[in-house]
Design a protein around this nucleic acid. Structure first.
Lengths: 334, 334
DNA sequence: TTGAAAGCGCTAACAT
DNA sequence: ATGTTAGCGCTTTCAA
């Protein structure tokens, strides 16, 4: 079997308690003893078994983060932000992907809870009842991300999707557009998409403009993503050839629509104005660069993690709902 | 504290052993007992503590996977493939990102080993000596991915980067290109990039053509990625205006170069031929679609995971070096 | 500053 | 088919 703390203790001629103290960086170990123990650790390539440590100390040192997918940079950045904050605090991150499936989310929560995480970061605030039960029974710090949960389980870290959508649509209206369609892909089981649609409708209604929301036909897969968006664009233009602007539910759709325009020879923004959401690297990389909403996806993860870590240490968080805001980035497509 | 197996046992009026048997799906439990226990589990929202279970059974049910980054779909797909195979086997996946830092990789290996994973999936085969020591002492199944390790620690799952690069460059030569430059971003601490360069040089040498390799000036960040590649393209064309083709070390560089061409009015492929590597969704989504090498990034993760799981069960793997191949995808940019 | 010992919550071997 | 019990490898009192 693998080396244990006993082997180290025996090798260094001390008790296991002392080795444990060295490992935890406790001050009450004499310099020489510490050194002897550390040498023995090196020599044996001893790696502490944190499963045992966690069981004993009731601190797993694990924080779970559950996101819809890692396949797009969208949430990878959030995971990244969380990881940065957690790693400096000696916490291990467990990542799970729901694949936009609310049932899978529940499975993941259950699987994660088995490892007794010190905190859990979830995306959105739409969960199965069992998740609430489980989380309630587990009694650990929880952060819900990417939206503004009105009554969060623990805390909420995100931004106002509806206001962001309203603002960017208003920007297009200000630019003189009148027949603005919305192009969506229905990949969220959460209500983020609905909030963006609400924001679009809010802006349109305020200006007495006609609402025109289009979902893509099938669920979007990563691979067909761009083409899928292109097809929806075709559909929109076929139904209403006088459409002069497209608000897309995210940058992937915006880029897909833009590609389609380039193929069809539609001049953007002159003939058709396009706006996205999220501000992925591709939005600024492409020509023409895409007007979009910049959302703090890295900060969302980092802020959630930071607060979770504090809560795990028994600190109290002043604000349960943390709004990180957003920014309208005007580029060349509008 | 949280609910334990004792609470369930007491509530159901059975011994802890019986509850454990129910949990593990053992057949030697009467139907009625099983049902009574399961009801109690439901009622209490009991979630087994797998830290304790792992400690006792010496099976953590955890498999670690360490990739350079999740910010690009490149490795996210590999993680995804691994996750798919592992989840059906009731194994939890721990993901770590090295950020292309070989020292961080060592840290991650150490952190993961503390959780006594049943296997570890690494990217590439260039590791610090300490990693070899640690892995050796831990004595667990290890898979190295994305390359062809000549002497893998455990097994190697990937493809021949050099041959792939050679083949796609040969394709450009066959199309009549003669002055082919290579555009790279030096983000790999692993030798994958070098192997691709070797493949490029192999093809060029074979046809007596002049070699011209360009690295980007700074390390590429995700955000500046496309612009960065564009700048390198500018540099290449400034130094050798008669360059008629660019082989890029990955699709991000290819797309970045293509964007730059569109900005500068360079006609692709007529004036300049461009090829990438990996076959990301953007490569087929963009117009003109990018010629590239399709690599089995999802299968790499899945195959590694499948074999690791088998090894963890004591099975012997026939082949230590698994070559999943690649495919040249000719599209519109060449 | 240190050693000894009692758990942490589970699994698995051994009884019955 | 089921209960009992001895660990798994740590952490954390409690003494010394």
């Amino acid at each position: 079997m693998s080396i244990t703390i006993k082997d180290v203790a025996a090798g260094a001629g001390v008790g296991v308690g002392t080795v444990s103290r060295v490992l935890s960086g406790s001050t009450s170990v004499s310099k020489q003893t510490r050194q002897r123990v550390e040498e023995e650790i090196q020599r044996l390539h001893y790696v502490p078994n944190s499963l045992a440590g966690a069981l004993s100390s009731r601190r797993s040192g694990i924080v779970g983060i559950i996101v819809p997918t890692l396949e797009q940079s969208i949430f990878a950045d959030t995971v990244d932000g969380a990881e940065s904050e957690l790693n400096v605090r000696n916490l291990q991150v467990m990542v799970g992907q729901t694949k936009y499936d609310i049932g899978r989310e529940a499975e993941l929560v259950k699987a994660f809870l088995k490892l007794r995480p010190e905190g859990l970061i979830l995306t959105g605030s739409n969960h199965l009842p069992i998740v609430h039960d489980l989380l309630n029974a587990a009694d650990i710090p929880v952060a819900e991300c990417w939206g503004r949960a009105e009554t969060p389980i623990g805390i909420s870290v995100g931004f106002d999707n509806q206001a962001a959508a309203r603002d960017i649509v208003t920007h297009m209206i200000d630019r003189g557009r009148r027949r603005i369609a919305m192009l969506c892909t229905p990949r969220y089981f959460d209500n983020r998409l609905q909030q963006r649609i609400d924001g679009y409708e809010e802006a349109m209604n305020l200006h007495g403009l006609e609402i025109d929301v289009h979902d893509s036909i099938e669920g979007a897969s990563t691979y067909s993503g761009f083409h899928q968006s292109g097809k929806v664009l075709d559909h929109i233009l076929q139904q209403r050839p006088d459409t002069d602007a497209i608000f897309c539910s995210d940058d992937f759709n915006a880029v897909g629509a833009l590609f389609r325009c380039q193929q069809r020879g539609i001049w953007v923004p002159n003939q058709l104005s396009i706006a996205g959401f999220v501000d992925l690297p591709i939005a600024s990389g492409i020509t023409p660069a895409v007007t979009t909403v910049r959302v703090p996806r890295w900060e969302i993860g980092a802020t959630a993690a930071r607060n979770l870590a504090a809560m795990a240490n028994g600190e109290t968080i002043p604000e349960r709902i943390i709004d990180l805001g957003y920014e309208i980035i005007v580029r060349e497509t509008t």
